[in-house]
């Protein structure tokens, strides 16, 4: 277990330096979209909030934190006294997991493809696809969060945004339900791409692709943003039989992700509980969130597929 105060300080320090909770090069957020040559401004903007792109880095950081958490110093396993700061921010070398980087790129490209196929043209703000600051909010760093939120809002407005299309539950929640409380005059409409696809009546018939899949509702979609039926509708029209785990919809169970930076060990225990529950129903687990994806994937056994919904809807065989 790591000293939460130290973890918070680390996140604060990195945010001020890099605009991310840990050192990440700016281009890592938007390089996936370069070959797509999407318009850079417009009323409908695809805003990823960088969460998908950060997951290969998060996985790398968590791996390092895990080593610190697991090591034994002075007979206790708690790393509560200055170890993180003595390591120094610079010592936390963050190399993204390369296999994850390519999965993330495929997911994001699939989302753009799905939107196009249902007739929704989006602009993409490239350099202005900034991190949403969701972790700052989650850690209660309200002042820092507010300042960051104002910056993100201005950048999106400068690109002509009226409606922003989000791709993950954390960014959807923060942009739709939290930003309005922190940013004066906030007037962006926010929709998850799953809502847009489902409400637009899009059908992605995948013919032989179908199969039995178990759905893992992310907490924020299910309990805070009422995105529950949309993914089910999309999956079933695409020919999948959607199975429900014991705890689903409004009472879905967390993947453990939010505390992986503080205690990778307990986060993993939570993920394992959830994984077991899901795989009782099917060997194909559908996730709707990059954090859920990473955490469930990390504890999944080889005979179980954890697949992002965008890939399934795009016709990637699980």
């Amino acid at each position: 277990m790591l000293n939460p105060i130290e973890v918070v300080k680390l996140v604060e320090d990195n945010m001020r330096r890099y605009g991310f909770p840990f050192p990440v090069p700016r281009e890592a957020v938007y390089s996936w979209a370069k070959p797509l040559k999407l318009p850079e401004r417009g009323p409908v903007i695809l805003y990823t909030g960088a969460l998908y792109q950060l997951t290969p880095y998060i996985a790398s950081v968590v791996e390092q934190l895990s080593t610190i958490e697991g090591s034994r110093v002075s007979g206790i396993a708690l790393k509560l006294s200055g170890i993180l700061s003595s390591l120094g921010v610079s010592r936390l070398v963050v190399r993204p997991k390369s296999d994850m980087v390519s999965v993330v790129e495929r997911i994001l490209k699939s989302i753009v493809g799905l939107l196009e196929r249902s007739g929704v043209k989006v602009a993409y703000p490239y350099e202005d696809d900034m991190y949403s600051g969701v972790l700052l909010y989650d850690l209660g760093l309200d002042e820092l969060f507010k300042g960051h939120a104002v910056k993100v809002y201005k950048a999106l407005k400068s690109r002509g945004a009226e409606l922003i299309v989000t791709v993950d539950p954390h960014t959807t929640h923060i942009m739709r339900s939290v930003y309005p409380r922190y940013v004066d005059g906030y007037d962006l409409k926010v929709k998850s791409y799953l809502e847009i696809l489902a409400e637009g009546g899009a059908e992605f018939k995948q013919g032989s692709i179908g199969g039995r899949v178990v759905i893992h509702d992310p907490c924020l979609y299910a309990r805070f943003e009422n995105v529950v039926e949309h993914p089910r509708k999309l999956l079933s029209t695409a020919g999948f039989e959607v199975l429900e785990p014991r705890r689903s919809r409004k009472m879905t169970y967390c993947c453990g992700g939010p505390i992986e930076g503080l205690t990778p060990r307990m986060a993993k225990m939570i993920a394992k509980t959830r994984f077991e529950e899901l795989r009782e129903k099917s060997k194909t687990i559908v996730t709707l969130c990059p954090i859920c994806y990473t955490n469930l994937k990390a504890v999944a056994e080889d005979d179980v597929d954890v697949v992002d919904i965008a890939l399934l809807l795009s016709g990637v065989k699980p």
Binding site: V7, V8, C219, I259
Partner: peptide
């Protein structure tokens, strides 16, 4: 207490129940 609250996932199962 706030220092302990960092362990909260913010998942909202408590709110819902």
């Amino acid at each position: 207490t706030g220092k302990l609250a960092y362990l909260c996932l913010g998942c909202g199962r408590c709110d819902a129940s």
